[in-house]
């Protein structure tokens, strides 16, 4: 599957403004990106039922995911995006503009600058992390590899974010995460379960040697309201 075979109800955001030169520095949308778009699309009614006010994408790269999220949400909301790579932050803003949606972008490391002020306030959190299993020394080195090198079990970057997820999310929030089988998704689910989240696999797809999943985490309610 490539981007042209995606849904026409909610087409992939236009990123024709980005060129080969841009993709020397930022992650070019690939199967994992499109899987995430498909998962968000699959959940569009659920997402709109939440009436999210604040959405945040960590590691926005080209910007197509946060742009897409803004496009499929009906009610006005604040769409924030953060990336460690200043060029990705710039691309994300351009992608928002190209698709005529407002995205607010910050260059920062994970949730760093948005805490503590966004604690308990983010309604939709999205993260397609650097998930590829690599030697640990390849993780978080400046350059394009930063966008995909995940170190041991492909988890080194994700594991820095996980402890803060329950702090950041609002009571009715949802967190969408891209993983591969090698990331030990059951372990991730267990870690978030300890923080009060239950998980659902929204979509799975095999892409070459990668078995990708998009997992959704929501708070476990103790009583039905």
């Amino acid at each position: 599957m490539n981007q042209t075979s995606r849904s026409s109800t909610f087409p992939t955001p236009d990123y024709s403004h980005l060129s080969v030169t841009d993709f020397d520095d930022i992650y070019e949308p690939a199967e994992d990106s499109f899987l995430l778009l498909d998962a968000l699309e699959k959940d569009v009614d659920f997402l709109n039922s939440l009436s999210p006010l604040i959405c945040l994408e960590v590691g926005c790269g080209s910007g197509i995911v946060i742009t897409f999220l803004r496009q499929i949400l009906v009610a006005p909301c604040l769409c924030l995006a953060v990336d460690r790579n200043p060029k990705a932050a710039q691309c994300t803003m351009r992608t928002g503009e190209q698709n005529h949606v407002q995205v607010e972008v910050v260059t920062s490391d994970l949730l760093n600058s948005f805490q503590p002020k966004l604690d308990g306030k983010v309604d939709v959190l999205v993260f397609n992390p650097p998930y590829v299993v690599t030697p640990p020394e390849e993780v978080e080195v400046d350059g394009l590899a930063r966008s995909w090198a995940g170190g041991i079990n492909g988890r080194q970057v994700l594991d820095r974010l996980l402890p803060d997820v329950h702090k950041l999310l609002s009571p009715k929030a949802v967190f969408y995460l891209v993983t591969t089988e090698e990331n030990r998704p059951d372990e991730i689910k267990q870690l978030l379960q300890q923080d009060g989240f239950h998980s659902t696999t929204v979509l799975q797809r095999k892409s070459g040697p990668e078995r990708l999943s998009v997992i959704k985490f929501e708070r476990r309610l103790t009583a039905v309201t």
Binding site: P86, S108, L110, L111, N112, S113, Q115, E140, D142
Partner: peptide
């Protein structure tokens, strides 16, 4: 604030222990 985007990245020596987890890579 570069092209309207705040760059909040910290240099290696500025990364503390308190607060949310963060990377120590320099920029």
């Amino acid at each position: 604030i570069e092209n309207g985007i705040p760059n909040m990245l910290l240099n290696e020596g500025e990364v503390g222990d308190a607060g949310p987890s963060q990377s120590g890579t320099s920029q």
